[in-house]
């Protein structure tokens, strides 16, 4: 029983395009990092890192083309980590203090 609607796998052309996108985001990241205002900088940086993360995992690692079971195994870890470690850092006052 496989899922019926697999989107077609990317082609090498797509892979090169994705690499260009990744490169552009990285350049933007470095530029943003020099903005002095934390309130602007920090969310932007996290958003861009997240975008790169999703692109590599989804397309290069083909996670969006995989069976649900694979995705869920990985998502479990991915969801657990920020919650657990968020609580730990919160209890140290790191997330609110600084």
């Amino acid at each position: 029983m496989t899922e019926a609607a697999h989107p077609p796998h990317p082609t090498p052309r797509d892979y090169w395009l994705i690499a260009v996108v990744l490169a552009v985001i990285t350049a933007a990241e470095v530029a943003v990092a020099y903005i002095g205002v934390d309130v602007v900088k920090v969310p932007l940086l996290f958003a861009m890192a997240f975008a790169k993360f999703v692109i590599v995992v989804g397309w290069y690692m083909h996670l969006r083309y995989e069976k649900k079971a694979y995705r869920r195994l990985f998502y479990l870890g991915l969801i657990a980590a920020p919650i657990l470690f968020g609580v730990v850092l919160f209890s140290f006052g790191v997330l609110i203090g600084s």
Binding site: E66, Y70, F74, G77
Partner: peptide
């Protein structure tokens, strides 16, 4: 492949 994804989930932690 399934096992590798499970392992990577573990590596996230």
């Amino acid at each position: 492949k399934l096992a590798m994804w499970a392992f990577l989930g573990s590596e996230v932690l």
